[in-house]
Amino acid sequence: MSPRKSVAETAATRDRIIESALTLASVEGLEGLTIGRLATELEMSKAGVIGHFGSKEGLQLAVLDAATERFRLRVPARAVGARPGTERLTRAFDEWIDYMSQDEGHGGCFLTSAAGEFDGRPGTVRDRVLDALDAWSAYVKAELDTAVENRELPERTDVEQLAFELNGVALAANQSIQLHRDPQAPTRARRAVARLLIAP
């Protein structure tokens, strides 16, 4: 076996472990992940699983990184073609709502669920979740600033408050979709986002 092939196979195995862990954690939470369960699911030894991450926390962080990248590609990356400001934000939130609604093997928004799971637990995992959500909030605020500059929103707009309200709509939508199984939740969420982004 060539070294290049060995590296590629190692990377493929690591990706397969992360994908399986992401599926399990979407149902049972990051704390619910166990090396034994993953090893059984993947027909690997426990040492073979943990060897790719060093510890359970290392595995949790790798899963979070994968979920963050999936969110980036599924939400803001799909809004890139929209005009900066309210149009781009509307598209991004629309994509986020779709992401919550569509069953892609990871029900709901993984980062939103992880935030609820770790919001009261200090540590590296919580910090990583916070970093991901802070990056999203910065994205929303930057687009709102652009909307104000372009006079799509009034100059007096409280960008911090509006970003808070928009994210609140998304959190409510995720809960209504996942917990209440409300088929009207996506429509209600889009209506709320549109109302918030219309200049008075």
Rank of each mutant, 00 (worst) to 15 (best):
A115H: 13
L22N: 02
S113C: 12
L38C: 06
E143T: 04
W136M: 07
T187R: 12
R126F: 11
P186C: 02
A132Y: 00
F164C: 15
L171R: 13
F71C: 03
L61N: 09
Y99R: 13
S113H: 14
P84W: 02
D15H: 12
L130V: 15
T86L: 07
R128C: 04
E31H: 09
V7M: 10
N167I: 06
L22G: 04
A173K: 00
D119V: 15
R156P: 05
D145T: 13
D158H: 09
L111Y: 01
G29C: 04
F118A: 04
Q175T: 12
V7G: 05
L171I: 13
V193Y: 00
T86Y: 01
L61G: 05
I198A: 15
S101K: 10
L30T: 01
Q60Y: 07
T124W: 09
A192S: 06
S55W: 08
Q178C: 13
A25L: 09
A172T: 06
L171E: 05
W136E: 04
T23L: 08
L73Y: 05
F93D: 00
V129C: 10
L171G: 06
L73R: 11
P84S: 05
I18C: 03
S55A: 08
L33T: 03
L61F: 08
L171Q: 12
T112L: 12
S176M: 14
G116D: 08
D103G: 09
D127V: 05
L73V: 07
I50A: 13
T34G: 07
I97F: 03
K5G: 06
R16N: 09
P76E: 02
R78S: 05
K56H: 14
A194I: 03
T34M: 05
R195C: 01
R188Q: 04
P76A: 08
A172K: 08
D182I: 01
S176H: 11
A142C: 05
R78T: 08
A62G: 10
L111M: 14
A25C: 11
P154M: 13
V27H: 15
T90D: 09
E160Q: 14
L73D: 06
W96C: 05
Q161S: 11
L24C: 12
S26G: 15
T13R: 15
N167E: 13
A39C: 15
G85S: 11
K56M: 14
T86K: 07
G85D: 03
A39I: 14
L61Q: 14
V125W: 01
T112M: 11
L33C: 05
F118P: 02
T157E: 05
